[in-house]
């Protein structure tokens, strides 16, 4: 009798793979919208035409443009004008510190943001000037000179104070770009900052109360509380998160989450932060995986040898 085992194995494998294909890749392709990455090109925004002057930019940011009336710039020794809870009570959300802005955000995006925040952030459906709905970040109307030049100067200044690209940590990227709206409690991050360890219960309760107050303002501003992103790397996956950040409207038309305008590199750092939170042991998994696979292959060899030895005189 000829050996039918290879044929049986092929049949089993084919049926298994067909079933797998149907319930996994195929079914998910039918259930979820697929959005291709735009590589954070922000093609809808015009490219800046002017080269900025850092010193002029500094004057504008700290002076005429009044950025520091709302934003802190720790890197320039400018603390935030208000604490996070008070700021959220006035603006709905705490304007982020601009120390890293020149690195985390795309330059094209910043240029557009300064002139027309609601446009750059893609929230014009919520903030329509014609209907008297003003975005809490006031647009820059110019300081008397060439406005495009002034904006370019400010962007150049923000870039000049930002850290070097290699010094950008995942936490810095996340806190600047997402941290004012999203908590990540597995990383002890709240919308008002990292939650410290408290010795006294009263202090902890006071901190929690502040977070809750902040969240109330944020909820009123956004229409809902932005979700805690602790496990989002597992529930949504990398592709979804990065294409969603690129343009939230692609997935959730009319959503209150703004287009944040990060560069591709900072988006990678944000993803890394979320991986540290929700897929913390991925490096360990990969290295142990290799060892276990090697061990199993050795086990296969011994198992084959044992079978051959036992069956030698059965044939």
């Amino acid at each position: 009798m000829k050996n039918k085992e290879p044929l049986i194995l092929v049949v089993v494998i084919i049926f298994t793979l067909v079933t797998y294909y149907l319930v996994e890749p195929f079914a998910h392709s039918q259930m979820h919208k697929h959005v291709e990455s735009e590589h954070f090109a922000y093609a809808d925004l015009p490219a800046p035409t002017k080269t900025g002057d850092v010193a002029r930019g500094q004057e504008l940011v700290l002076g005429a443009a009044a950025c520091t009336g709302c934003h802190g710039i720790e890197a320039a020794g400018m603390p935030a004008p208000m604490d996070a809870v008070t700021a959220a009570a006035s603006y709905g959300v705490n304007p982020p510190d601009l120390s890293n802005a020149g690195l985390v955000y795309d330059a094209k995006f910043l240029t557009d943001l300064i002139k027309n925040p609601a446009h750059a952030l893609m929230v014009e459906h919520k903030f329509d000037i014609n209907k008297g709905q003003m975005h809490p970040m006031v647009p820059f109307y110019g300081a008397g000179g060439d406005m495009d030049q002034e904006v370019a100067d400010m962007v150049a200044y923000l870039v000049s104070i930002a850290p070097k690209a290699e010094d950008l940590t995942p936490a810095m990227a996340f806190e600047t770009a997402c941290g004012r709206c999203h908590a990540v409690h597995y990383e002890k991050w709240t919308q008002i900052g990292s939650k410290p360890m408290f010795k006294k219960k009263q202090d902890e309760l006071a901190f929690d109360t502040q977070v809750l107050d902040y969240q109330d303002s944020l909820k009123a501003y956004m229409g809902k509380l932005p979700p805690d992103l602790s496990m989002y790397i597992r529930s949504r996956g990398e592709h979804f998160i990065s294409t969603f950040v690129e343009n939230p409207q692609n997935y959730l038309a009319g959503t209150a989450m703004p287009r944040v305008g990060v560069t591709a590199e900072s988006a990678e750092k944000v993803i890394e932060y979320l991986e540290d939170s929700g897929d913390t042991k991925r490096h360990e998994r990969e290295s142990i995986g290799v060892n276990v696979m090697l061990y199993m292959l050795i086990f296969v060899i011994f198992a084959i040898l044992w079978k051959k030895q036992v069956w030698r005189d059965l044939h």
Binding site: R285, G289, V292, M293, M296, V300, I304, W306, K307
Partner: peptide, 20 residues
Amino acid sequence: AKDMMVVAFYLVFFFYLVFY
């Protein structure tokens, strides 16, 4: 002995799934 040989092949497949 044959059972174990099949189990060995199966475990390679199984741990591949577990890690990757």
